[in-house]
Design a protein around this nucleic acid. Structure first.
Lengths: 200, 200, 200, 200
DNA sequence: AATGAATGAGACTTCATTCAT
DNA sequence: CATGAATGAAGTCTCATTCAT
């Protein structure tokens, strides 16, 4: 729509792909430009620096993921139902956007210095949203009384790493099986329930 | 007494610290040498390249963590008991070795290209160990029948990300609370058990 | 007009000058760039490495010299006439291109390891050409029956070292005198012909 | 005799070998020490610097060659006889000491800057000696009246380059053939003598 | 707007030399 | 004497960024 032949989008897509594969520092602007089929100088027409492109990707990615998931969740009623949807959607989103997921994992969780900028953002946006849903569930008695911040973080970590781990899965068949496993694990735990009287 | 005044250890400690804080690519050998209080050339007396130092740190870290946890677990009986110990030990280990944890998270999970070397190693060593414990628990009826590979990965991810997230926690008080939450979550799930009728 | 302001030529000229004066290993890319009035990085826009620039200079130099001399010689008739021209032209060429001559002497004759690449080339190109002219002369009876390979090599060595030695000569006067001496020496030998008695 | 187990000799031999094969700048003190089976520090017990070892080798080599050849020549009578012996001895010496010959070729003839030190020395010592023999021969009428400096230089260059070229020759058979060719060429020239009337 | 030639700061790595043992 | 661990100066090469076209 910008009349630029989609150059900006091509640059962003190329940057995301290569950043996630090789890492930010090992990616050259040259590579991005080539993959995007533009001149190296053109990169700088759209982004002030390589760093800015990364920041933009992370920002946009987090925002988009948050909006996507919230849009799926907000109409649902009940904390368990909402959390079930969150697990499903986040897993699928990360599975469909592995490069973004990998980027977040490396650049957000892997860094310590510029904690102000990136790590904080995801915590204060996405994880806070999870936490609120969980808090509500606890208040309403649907969920057990556990520390919601820890649970939210654990849920996020569980899904991210599984999504990265499952990268070889190409069939949605496999993805559904994994999703079911995660749902069971998260909602009911790993332990075999001690049937109240039976077992005797 | 290696007769080297502990230079090798100082270099490794410095490298781990700075790698985990700034990332591998943003760390210069100069910085490592300065932090280790040795000359720049001395770095190369102990490691053939910056890359080799990283590989060594990851290798050694993974091996040490694996051995540490296995030593705590192997004398225990029962899958649930073993898994409880694993959760406890891995959380504490990552909490006590946050730089290593951060390094693994970024360099192992954040990369895609050299999948052969590092990502494979942690999957095939540590996670496989978790998987075996879980498989045994399922076979013996202590654990529910879930996909053990997914569960093992989820457990690993849950603990890692929480350990990184909880980095501001300095009191063991806080750590114990987090640990308890994770134990409850992992073993019993987040859902309030629907007591069949009673509870009234 | 290559549109590059002759940068490539300036770099080559600078490299040749400094290589021949200080030697390849003692020459820094920085020096070449400064002499060529370009930035250090610009050197690498035109050549992949310092080594490549050397190789290019030697290759181009040998080729150019060979073509130059062959062009002078090919129209001439008679082996002696041809060889006279070769002596004249090679001496003048090396005298006018002393840096190249010095470079060849050091890098081609002075090395032993990468014999495959450079030393072979000059032998198989230029010296082989000399050898053919000599072989023809022997066949046609104009020249004495001597080992043509040794003679060709000797001729080449004689001219090269004299050209390097005579570097202080700036007047063509001096060069002509040296040339005459070489011609006499090569064609007639150093010995006073023992005219048995007569000739008077 | 120095009671040092021949360490100094081993170092010199190692340095000569490696210098001549790889060049001075591409040779590390480490390599020399290893080849000489001494510690790296020991090198500096015998030579103040790597450069000094090179200088010593060149100095010693030139002196030794000069003495060797002069000792063979001084008892002979007649310029032609002396020059014949010189050709024979220098060719053999260079053939038997190819590393030295290569070193001289590269470091003496290939350089331009420190002309004061090395290039001057060989010119003023060895070549001057040749020149004197030639001058005498001319004065006595045995040799033709040619510029003795040029002839001496040419003779030196002829023999050096042939000796380097003939490095693949291992049999003395081959060497003798080459020597004969050089003698013929130098003393009688390449041209078929126009027998005064004969040829008819 | 688009481009890529040009640039120089800066990174990794090597290696001659020193010096404590 | 002999040694090799330690060092930092220096060199090659990369790459983000600029700018003239």
């Amino acid at each position: 729509m910008s009349g630029d032949g989609g150059k900006r989008e091509r640059i962003l897509a190329a940057a995301l792909d290569i950043f996630s594969t090789q890492g930010f520092s090992n990616t050259t602007v040259q590579e991005i430009a080539e993959r995007a089929r533009v001149g190296k100088g053109t990169f700088y027409t759209y982004f002030p620096s390589k760093e800015d492109a990364l920041t933009y990707l992370l920002d946009e990615g987090l925002t988009h993921m948050g909006q996507h998931i919230e849009s799926k969740v907000q109409t649902l009623k009940g904390s368990v139902v909402k959390l079930q949807a969150i697990v499903q959607e986040q897993l699928r989103y990360f599975h469909n956007h592995q490069p973004l997921c990998r980027l977040i994992t490396r650049e957000v969780w892997g860094h310590n210095d510029q904690s102000s900028s990136l790590a904080q953002r995801i915590r204060s946006s996405y994880i806070k949203m999870l936490q609120e849903v969980i808090d509500n569930g606890i208040k309403e008695g649907e969920l057990r009384t556990l520390d919601s911040e820890t649970v939210a973080t654990a849920l996020y970590g569980m899904i991210s790493i599984v999504a990265l781990y499952a990268k070889e899965l190409s069939s949605d068949q496999g993805l559904e099986y994994i999703e079911m496993t995660l749902q069971e694990l998260f909602f009911s735990g790993i332990t075999q329930p001690r049937t109240i009287m039976g077992e005797a």
